[in-house]
Amino acid sequence: MEICKSLMIGISLGLVAGAAAAQDYPAKDVTMIVPWSAGGGTDTIARSLVSQAETCFGANINVVNKTGAVGAIGMGATSTARSDGYTVGLVTFNLSTYGLLGQADLSYGDFDLIQLINQSPGAITVAANSEWETLDDLMKYTQENPGVVTVGHAGTGGAWHLSAATLAKKYDASFNYVPFDGSANVRTALLGNHVAVATTGIDEMKQLLEAGEVRILAVNALERADAFPDVPTVSEAGYAIEAPVYDWRGLAAPKGIDDAVKAKITAGFKACFESENFQALAKEKGLPLVYKDPAEFETFLADMETSLGAAIADLGIGK
């Protein structure tokens, strides 16, 4: 009897504590795991998103970089963290391809999704002194001289490789793909004329475009990018494609978070996302922000996996 009583008290105390946890959330600092290295594009976005978390989120958010394994270490750490709402993580494009490329057993189903942050289209860029003025020049040249033109990209099976390769595949253009370790190295190689063409995120070329060092032949998207009104889409340049590959970044939490806590997290990050500070930074960087709530984000990722699965199988690089 006594045991039963204390058990009851224990359970009810536990329930009260649970409810209180949701009500008080956030009662302490939150940790955000970033799966890419400090100083990189993803890290910069994460840090600026949470730089004023005290006001928009209601607590400090500390960024921890857990890098390695093309992001699988950090995203894996988020998926297995305690689901008390005090650990969240950045998830990026690679989450869509781990399974398809046979790299890691990790997919969006392992998370409670919070929101999409950005969705960036790829760009096809040449150096300012290049002989190709338009996408048409480049494609015609490649169709006549297969395998000659070198295209630098940020890693095999990555967003920018797939972005260019799906386009080339459709129009029988045979490029010589040179994989680099990240887009920064692709930019250097393009400036040093070590590769003839670069495929990167369009925002990653903003600086060089403004400095007159490069020419963006086309944006590989259905619509022009806001920050680059003068750059034509691939279809305007004469090479239409139905489902271009986009890079994306979003936020996710470990699976099994209390619904009330999750609602608070979602609202908190939305406030940070909408803050003037973050919007201004994204605008300056030419980063196309796209918000999707948890349900929309899930649909987006399901669609993404379907279209990427087809693209990867088509290129013959999958497992």
Binding site: A69, V70, A72, L101, G102, Q103, P179, F180, D181
Partner: peptide
Amino acid sequence: IGFDPIAGSSRYTFGVRNLLGG
């Protein structure tokens, strides 16, 4: 050891996630 960005495949990792990044 680890993920090979040139070929896009993993080498000598034996399915260990911690080795995927080298």
